[in-house]
Amino acid sequence: MSVSANDNAAKVSVRGVLAKYSVLIAFAAIVIFFAIASPTFLTPANLFNVLVNNVVMLAIVALGLTIVISSGGIDLSVGVSVDMASMIFVMLLAVGYSGVVGVAGGLGAALIVGILNAIMITRLNISPFLATLGVLFIGQSTQQLATSGGQPIYLTSGYAADQFNAIARTALFGMPTPVIVLIVLVVAVHVLLHRSVFGRYVQAMGAQPGVAWYSGIRVPRELSMVHVLCALLAGVTGILLSATVKSYVPLSGNAFLLDAIGATFIGTTLSRERKPSVIGTLLGVLLLAIVKNGLLLVGWNFYWQQVGIGVLVFLVLAASFGLRRVAH
């Protein structure tokens, strides 16, 4: 009798552990699989390529969403922040401004999106989902109006191209500048979210908004900050994106939205309470990036990649949620 009880307890805890680390296990399994399936997968050149092309930009957007989702909200307008930063940045360079002015302008545009979200959510009491959905629609219209229906702007030569190269093609301490930017932002957001007073407020608002309010946290102020930070981070991605592809393609930022939400929530499976964390989010981004790259190397065509990613994310979520449900 007691043996079977012990057995049960052991099983439950094994399941709990499996649930907790299902993402890590999946991650390891996928890396091993692709390492065997494709000889080029584990080469430094390929891993570097994944980091620069698939990880950096998505990770920065996902960092912003991690903050917002920690606060109990959502930001569907991150794509607009990416696009607006990209648009203003490229437009300023197109008329001859320097890279510094362009970056400032781009971040300023993202800031405006963030402030708009913050006002909607904290002053007008609109739910984050609807507020940012509305801003998303407005942002799409703005871009279409500003580019006569979505004409891309290419700046592939001349002064502007040099400015782009100065951002995207230079190296600091032997690393490409975008990677350095990512590392700095990861550390900054980690400290902010997990080691600062602000972070505690954000977590409190996410866990118990009412209690946070009664505890004297100035919820509107902190929540505004959360949305502004998210928009600014997305703006950084917009600038890196434009500098890398030397152009502004309208409405391209939305491609980040679903992946970033996916990465953040995959990251939440690391914690028992399903709280987002910077480490978890990074793991989610890496998982998505490696699967995309691996499927490409194995020779799956582009269309199958999306199916593969969907199935994989589904399985990881199923393992994590399903096992934990059994464990409880």
Binding site: F265, G308, G310, L317, F321, R325
Partner: peptide
């Protein structure tokens, strides 16, 4: 069946269907 958040579950299925 699996208790996955609807937002996440349908996001994954979105990718499968679109792919």
């Amino acid at each position: 069946g699996l208790g996955i958040l609807p937002l996440l579950a349908t996001l994954a299925v979105l990718n499968v269907a679109a792919g």
